[in-house]
Design a protein around this nucleic acid. Sequence first.
DNA 1: CCGGAAAACTAACATAGGTGAACAAGCCGG
DNA 2: CCGGCTTGTTCACCTATGTTAGTTTTCCGG
Lengths: 247, 247
Amino acid sequence: MVAEALLRKLEYFVRLSPHDKEVLERAAAERHRNLGPHERILTEGDKPKVIYLVLEGWACRYKHLEDGRRQIVGFFLPGDLCDLNVFILREMDHSISSITSVRLAEITRHSFEEILDGHPRVTQALWWETLVSIAIQREWTVNLGQRDAMERMAHLLCEMFVRLRTAGLGRGKSCDFPVTQSELADATGMSTVHVNRTLQELRNLKLIHLSGRILTIPDLGRLMQAGLFNANYLHLDREGAHLDANE
Amino acid sequence: MVAEALLRKLEYFVRLSPHDKEVLERAAAERHRNLGPHERILTEGDKPKVIYLVLEGWACRYKHLEDGRRQIVGFFLPGDLCDLNVFILREMDHSISSITSVRLAEITRHSFEEILDGHPRVTQALWWETLVSIAIQREWTVNLGQRDAMERMAHLLCEMFVRLRTAGLGRGKSCDFPVTQSELADATGMSTVHVNRTLQELRNLKLIHLSGRILTIPDLGRLMQAGLFNANYLHLDREGAHLDANE
DNA sequence: CCGGAAAACTAACATAGGTGAACAAGCCGG
DNA sequence: CCGGCTTGTTCACCTATGTTAGTTTTCCGG
């Protein structure tokens, strides 16, 4: 079992048959790539040749402006895929790096097309995950455009926590959170100083406990309120029974 | 010819055969919907049943926070499609409204699947347009997170101008620009007052001329510099000849 | 051509968040 | 267990942008 997190996540959308799971497992087992923390996975300008699936660890997408400013536009958690179909594009318009050490599966165009051709339920599940990741990107736009520092940070923490839980990571009210404050700054569009202030404030309000790369959220409901967080954009609601596999 | 703008845009990616074009035309001709300015097209919570293609006019996607703040997360121009595959999701996580009067084509799930099954080059072109729209969303995230007011506005204007040109709209250095300052505020995450200040500044610097819903950009290069705009994320570069139709 | 609403514009003032600079704490290799 | 580098934290000050509250201009239906 190498693609556990992905399978677990997709099952929020459809119930997969043992055969479906096997197909995904096989695609994810084909070829792996291991990286240490803070290594480049793909660089702006590269020609993407495979689809990456994160098996273990955290990574992020980001873009640099000419003058060096950096915006992290998304985090990758175990079970996350970089865009299906990337190989259609001539070159990457952004970069991807690891945050922690990372284990990636490389899914070839070939085995991806095999899934598209022979496994309609898996295909649907993969498009669902794509649509969700687009929705996440939209929500980040809202986050940066409308929420103030506290709300923005609270929202981000809620999202990561829920997504981790969806992938079967996270233990009760806690989860790993291996992101530095300077990375949080790049993700929220704030200065590191203000990230620090904001985290202090969230701590003082007892909304979070964050230290030693472990995040604890004593009352998720309250943090969600503080961040005007509404999970609907993650679409974690299985459709009617007609989509289930008849096992 | 009803889907002119779409065809024109897709041809930045692949050369479509007359037959390809016919298929798209047919899908776009099936059923239309006309709206006046500022009408709701889809509302958060709706169950999407068709794919919309904008034939004429401007529209936008947006999300509301509970307290009424609104973020426009994208503009739709003629030739733009709302997400392929939306009908996979149980409900919309955002809303779509017209800005000007709009003419939409409704593409049914059925005719979409017909394209997927029988027209691989058109399919590829449609996935290309999807990937580009995701890239645009990422760039908006960068825009809101890193650029200051002037850069942000300049960047947005460049993007809209280039996209309009791609769709075959725009006349030389000018194009329609039917967006109010309050809509610009919702799109850039700024206050209306500051949008106004910023536009004044761009006018004073002779970077734009904007009045009466017409935008003129005397020197696109300079505006691009002011906005740190790099068009690579729009992926307007046809791949090698092997993708061309052999007509 | 008139009147009212929407949109554009302006000014004075308030503040969230940025900057620079310093220091403390944690972590890692030798 | 030491020294250096990264990360976290705090402070004092500054500025980009928001807010409130107008006025003016444009647009549009009758």
